[in-house]
Amino acid sequence: MTVEVLRYCPAAPNGAQKIKYEIEANNQTLLEVLTAIKTEYDATLSFNSDCRSGVCGSCAMRVNGVEVLACTYKVHDGDTVEPLRNMEVIRDLVVDSDHALAFNKKAHAYGSVSAVTRNVTPEEEKVNELQSACILCASCYSACPVYEVNSDFLGPFALTRSWRYVSDVRESDVSDKIATIQDNGIWDCTLCNECVPVCPVGIAPKQDIVMLRNKSGVMGYMDPSFSANFGGGFGNDGTPDFGDPAF
């Protein structure tokens, strides 16, 4: 079968190029195929991988425009393989994820110093068990269309991680975390759902963003575009303020 790989090396003169590889594959993963190409035909083909079992998240890339983990995707004839989007390509299928990963810090998506130490019941653990399983593969980040217009958007995985901590029973005061995600955060998401089907562990970042919006609403924040459209924002009871009626 034939597999096409979009290859790019900054030092090469002709930019990115699609290269076709004739391979023998039968029920093989994309990572197995890429490894075979690298170790048997072309040692310059560059990609990242580590655990080979869908756990570490380092081999995320796109096949026919959709984000996959190379180690869990079974290759088909005619597949086109490309690097993740919304990140600078370093070489071939390797992208620079530093900018993306920095959003976790910007979103304060980590345990607070003020968090209390106490036992967590199995039920309480369930609340954010799924969100805790994020492997930071950045598939959702690559699928998100917001980056076309806003490169400062905190993005799906950082917001999922924010919800993971906001919903943690040990976090006694989440006001700082909620304040941090108002700008370039939860309200910039278009709720388009693109991030949901590509997550290899079944996380739905969009859902978590909706949860953060609800939480923000309860804490007195509102959608800035809404308040801009309606002039005065919301009243204290949450109903839109249409300004003083003119009699």
Binding site: C9, P10, A11, K38, A43
Partner: peptide, 12 residues
């Protein structure tokens, strides 16, 4: 030895 002589992200 490595077949890839590149100085950029040379996994080989």
């Amino acid at each position: 030895g490595p077949k890839d002589k590149s100085r950029t992200y040379n996994t080989n």
